[in-house]
């Protein structure tokens, strides 16, 4: 029994912390949001996530975020590169940046720009490696973004990990969440998005299509049903970059007829009819 208690104590001590503070360095922020300890008990999930685009949510979108900083803020809006303005992108791409100091937010912006524009290959790679410490990880989905009705339910509780079962764990406190099983949960970022500055953008419009065109036409499955639960896809969440799931989403039928046009001339003519059926829960293509 003593041994068991000791193990639990160790796990609790090394559990990731959802600290609500202000971090001055990227390493401090990354450490507070580290998911290394999640791997201890959730190795399979961690491995799946590692190969997901969620784990690359900043590095995979460097060009777009860089353009927002340089062109959007710098040239069009003429607004400062500060934490609040960066959160317009980062509220989805790396919500943990909300806990960065202003100095760190500026460093992050500089790293993003360097990871795209830097001419020196080594410096560019170093910037990419550094900025890859920010991503959408276990803590972001199972805590930071978990509450969809904050006015009703308040903020997520620090150091509590929310999941579909709420199964207790010796390593951390757990809570059951209905939200995490809904399409709306994904729609927070994969939909028409209202950033913290109150503006409206259409960064990713999947959820609008899901609601209006899929649910509106009788579809009943959720994002999780196809991108997570089907075929044990788990936390890899395959999507637009995976040929298998794209192929599953679109059926092809080809009919070809050989006829001859224009009486007297009889010109051989091909009439090809191509039918594409979108079986996905949203329009194709989409973000």
């Amino acid at each position: 029994m003593k041994r068991f208690i000791w193990i639990c104590a160790l796990l609790l001590a090394t559990a990731p912390l959802t600290v609500y503070g202000e971090f001055a360095t990227l390493d401090e922020l990354a450490k507070a949001y580290s998911v290394d300890t999640c791997r201890t008990c959730h190795a399979k999930v961690h491995t799946e996530w590692t190969s997901s685009y969620h784990s690359q949510s900043v590095v995979h979108s460097l060009g777009g975020i860089r353009n927002f900083i340089v062109v959007g803020l710098g040239q069009e809006w003429k607004k400062p590169v500060n934490r609040d303005n960066l959160m317009r992108c980062m509220a989805c791409h790396a919500p943990q940046l909300a806990e960065a100091s202003e100095g760190l937010a500026t460093q992050v912006a500089d790293l993003i720009i360097a990871a795209v524009d830097e001419k020196d290959g080594k410096k560019k790679d170093a910037a990419k490696k550094e900025i890859a410490k920010l991503n959408v990880n276990c803590i972001v989905c199972h805590n930071t973004k978990i509450i969809l009705e904050k006015n009703l339910k308040g903020d997520p509780k620090p150091n509590v990990y929310y999941g579909p079962t709420g199964k207790s764990s010796p390593a951390h406190r757990s809570a059951k969440s209905k939200e995490i099983q809904t399409a709306l949960f994904c729609g927070q970022c994969h939909g028409i998005y209202t950033p913290p500055d109150g503006d409206i953008i259409q960064c990713n419009t999947l959820y609008g299509s899901y609601q209006e065109a899929y649910r509106g036409n009788g579809g009943a499955e959720t994002c999780q049903d196809c991108h997570m639960l089907a075929k044990n896809r788990g936390h890899k969440f395959p999507g637009a970059y995976e040929v298998e799931i794209v192929k599953e989403g679109v059926d092809l039928d080809v009919q070809a007829a050989a006829i001859k046009l224009t009486p007297g001339k009889w010109i051989p003519t091909a009439i090809v009819t191509v039918s594409l059926t979108n079986k996905a829960g949203h329009r194709i293509p989409d973000g």
């Binding site: 992108c89 065109a213 039918s275 594409l276």
Partner: peptide, 26 residues
């Protein structure tokens, strides 16, 4: 730019629908 886009003109394949194209070539 995502920050610039306010509306989307939908030229995609809609879900739960079949879209048909016909090509006639002499």
């Amino acid at each position: 730019g995502a920050w610039q886009i306010k509306e989307v003109v939908d030229l995609t394949l809609p879900p739960r629908k079949t879209t048909k194209e016909r090509f006639v070539t002499e």
